[in-house]
Computed example of a mutant assay.
Amino acid sequence: MNSKDILDHLIGFPTISAESNLDLIGWVERYLRDLGFSLWRIEDPTGKKAGLFARIGPDLPDGIMLSAHSDVVPVSGQDWSYEPFRLRESGGRLYGRGTADMKGFLASMLRAAAAASKARLKEPLKLVVSYDEEVGCKGIAEMMPVLVPLMERPRLCIVGEPTSMQIATGHKGKASYRATCTGEAGHSAMGPRYRNALHLGADFIGALRPLQMDLSASGAQDTGYGVPYSTVHAGRMAGGTALNIIPDLCHIDYEIRHLAADPLASLEARLEEAADWIGDVTIEKTGAYPGLEVAPGSTEVQFLRALLPAPKLTKVGFGTEAGHFHSAGISTLVCGPGNMDQGHKADEFIEISELEACDRMMDHLVEELAG
């Protein structure tokens, strides 16, 4: 099958992060097993989702690894012109949920697997398919204890998030948190006698803002990013039951996206100090993934450059699973077809020319592995 045919199958699996991906994983397993790959299924703690590790070629620790996530964001509340889980071609584009983010790369990766199965490889080709990337890279974090000994030491891992086939050498790390503000319930007519949890929450959000101002004015700067400094963002505040009841509980969900030069621990400490000063505010970390920072002149970048016609180096504003691989000691870059401007919205699409460009890169990669 060509990449378009494979993508047609992949889009047909509605692998929204809140749902199971086992049907897709089963299909990919059968496809790769028929090609002669060795396979390891890695289930999540619930047994309702799974990731895969696969390899083919000589029993050596190096080789090249390709990585893609299987989950997609929801389509509810979006005004689609087409059925989101049925691939549609129009005007040189392929439409469907996940075409850009990132089943297009997964399709090209599986096409490359077929080519590798017919080649006399001198180095192995290794593949990773994960779950729950769209909810803070949760799946790959759960998979890593099993993956680390299986992956061994590939000389490069390519994470195929959409970069318009440019080479992304970095992205910020991210951590998410929930601040819980505890007040006292009471009648609003006696408001001053009680501790209002929403007021505590407002004070905590007030502490986020000067931190952001300091980061933008005097924090580390990296002009490779559209926003060149670390960011702090409150995305959700919830509390209270009725206007005439003093709220006794307030939750604030917030995040920190940080440059490598801004240690996360120091940013966390500043907000912990603010919580202590306000009082009755506790902070829980709800998720995190590491950033990525690769030197532009590294051998990994030069290797990937040679597989592409005239790639530019870039950095991406969104997070990826690359940080987890890089933190495990595996040289990792981000490069894939499509553009994130088309992801996460109605009528998501990928240009057919982008998919073809990825296929050409994969062809060169298989040739490299065959020596």
Rank of each mutant, 00 (worst) to 15 (best):
39 L>K: 06
171 H>M: 05
33 R>G: 04
164 S>V: 02
69 H>T: 10
201 G>K: 03
62 D>F: 15
252 I>F: 03
256 I>L: 10
251 H>Q: 13
269 A>S: 15
344 H>G: 12
151 M>T: 07
353 S>Q: 13
133 E>S: 08
1 M>R: 08
359 D>E: 15
21 N>K: 09
29 E>G: 06
340 M>H: 05
46 T>R: 14
63 G>Y: 03
266 S>K: 14
110 L>D: 02
222 D>C: 03
196 N>T: 02
146 V>H: 04
336 G>E: 05
316 V>H: 01
228 P>S: 03
91 G>I: 08
76 S>V: 11
211 L>F: 06
8 D>E: 12
299 T>F: 09
121 L>M: 10
207 A>T: 08
95 Y>L: 11
149 P>L: 14
116 A>T: 12
75 V>L: 09
29 E>Y: 02
246 I>L: 01
61 P>V: 13
275 A>E: 11
193 R>E: 11
109 M>S: 02
326 H>L: 14
283 I>W: 10
135 V>T: 13
120 R>M: 07
235 G>D: 05
177 Y>M: 03
33 R>F: 07
208 L>R: 04
200 L>K: 05
226 G>E: 14
114 A>Y: 03
176 S>P: 02
186 G>R: 01
194 Y>K: 04
72 V>C: 12
303 F>K: 11
8 D>I: 04
309 P>S: 12
256 I>S: 00
155 R>T: 01
339 N>E: 12
307 L>D: 00
99 T>Q: 05
81 S>N: 12
155 R>H: 08
219 G>T: 14
145 P>N: 09
210 P>Y: 02
279 G>Q: 13
183 G>E: 03
370 A>P: 04
174 K>R: 11
107 A>G: 07
13 F>M: 10
329 G>I: 06
122 K>G: 13
214 D>Q: 15
5 D>T: 15
298 S>L: 07
224 G>R: 05
48 K>C: 09
250 C>P: 00
198 L>P: 01
279 G>Y: 11
100 A>S: 11
87 L>H: 10
303 F>Q: 06
96 G>A: 09
282 T>C: 08
148 V>T: 13
165 M>F: 01
168 A>P: 04
43 E>F: 13
337 P>K: 08
354 E>N: 09
65 M>G: 13
120 R>H: 12
331 S>N: 13
184 E>W: 00
52 L>F: 13
271 L>E: 00
132 D>L: 06
263 P>C: 10
357 A>R: 15
218 S>H: 11
148 V>S: 10
249 L>Y: 01
214 D>L: 11
19 E>G: 03
89 E>A: 15
337 P>S: 07
186 G>V: 05
312 K>G: 10
345 K>H: 09
229 Y>F: 15
356 E>Q: 15
186 G>F: 01
307 L>S: 04
297 G>V: 07
116 A>R: 01
370 A>T: 03
106 L>D: 00
16 I>Y: 01
205 I>D: 05
123 E>G: 04
74 P>L: 06
56 I>S: 02
317 G>W: 14
240 G>D: 06
155 R>F: 06
358 C>S: 14
359 D>A: 10
365 L>M: 15
155 R>W: 02
29 E>W: 04
175 A>D: 00
163 T>L: 07
229 Y>E: 01
180 T>I: 08
166 Q>H: 07
238 A>K: 10
103 K>M: 08
324 H>F: 12
57 G>Y: 04
123 E>C: 05
370 A>W: 02
105 F>M: 04
